[in-house]
Design a protein around this nucleic acid. Structure first.
Lengths: 191, 191
DNA sequence: TATTACCCTTAATCTACATTAAGCCTATTT
DNA sequence: AAATAGGCTTAATGTAGATTAAGGGTAATA
């Protein structure tokens, strides 16, 4: 619980009432590798804070291939906002890549915090804005950079994750096959 | 100015003090076709509300090709959040596709509203969340759908814009060439 | 120790889409 | 009325990256 309180110090720090309101509503859970916290077709119920470990969020296309949208590791948030807000079946999966410790806030509790403590509106506005920026840069890259360049950016942007994740997951994030990633890695080191 | 006040009725409607605080800070401008309100390298200064007309926001890759990230028409907001927030040079252009009427809020005024009227934190949180959802769905499509499928979705999602925009702009949004869009359109109608 | 399950790599072949180039049509400018 | 500039289309050729297939490495079960 301390980690999430410290997390909010990056934005507008919480006072004691706000801390109490938040932490009393958070539910801590342990998640095993390969366990899902959201599956396609489900309605997403939680906004999830990752204390320890790493998740991937991905969609599956008509031919069954997985496409990683994001990775989420320590001190970061993950949810399918579309499904959470609009209460419609999710198109996505959120799956643990490592054993994880998480803190979850239900939609009802999140709404309660928004209504009674405006600081949460502020802090989550900034959190979402930062995520929007990430996504916008990613989309721009997807359109205007080659797979080689996207791989370079990935390494630059996620130096931690680059070593933690198997190449298959990175390939799925970059929008290429593991075979082609292998080719890229090879062309970087030799020649 | 009425249109923007009505716009906020979709979220938490503004009271008289909030209306006054907002409208007294908005600056109305007329923008001609092909005029920029943001160019690559500039630091984005405004959050812009479109009263009338249509803008495109795009990036240019190493070989000079344009890639449309979004279109923004009536009753919608546009800015480069990355540049506005972090005060760093934008990688993007925002250009009028049609003659436009806009209302602009400077960063300073926006911050003032956030600090003094928490409802703006709330309303802009929801606005950004909706934009995040759009972007996430677009990224998922980009990865997992063919150009044909993406064209179908575009038409479904923007029935207005599909008729208003030249095909070159739609192609740039879909991430394909106008030539290939022409092929797709043809294969839809004949066989 | 064997077994299962991933994961990484190489290489041959294939395909969705890009590139180039040309021709035609309609608006806008001169 | 002529000229210029966009925009749409067709068609030939080119290429980034997919697909398929196979072999080898390593970690977690049994």
């Amino acid at each position: 619980m301390e980690s999430i309180v410290r997390h909010f110090d990056k934005y507008l720090p919480l006072d004691d009432r706000e801390k109490e309101a938040l932490t009393s509503r958070l539910v801590q859970r342990q998640i095993k590798r390969k366990q899902y916290i959201l599956q396609e077709g489900d309605i997403c119920k939680y906004f999830t804070y990752v204390v320890e470990g790493c998740f991937k969020m991905y969609g599956v296309d008509n031919s069954g291939a997985e496409h990683n949208l994001t990775f989420t590791a320590e001190d970061d948030w993950i949810t399918d906002i579309d499904s959470l807000h609009k209460e419609r079946p999710s198109k996505l999966f959120i799956e643990a890549i490592e054993p994880c410790t998480i803190l979850q806030l239900s939609k009802g509790d999140l709404w309660y915090l928004y209504t009674n403590y405006p600081k949460f509106d502020r802090n989550f506005r900034v959190i979402i804005e930062d995520k929007y920026i990430e996504l916008q840069n990613r989309l721009l890259q997807t359109f205007s950079a080659t797979a080689y360049e996207r791989y370079e950016s990935f390494i630059e942007q996620y130096p931690n994750l680059a070593n933690r994740l198997p190449n298959t997951q990175i390939a799925s994030y970059l929008g290429i096959t593991p075979e082609f990633l292998s080719k890229i890695r090879n062309s970087r080191t030799h020649g």
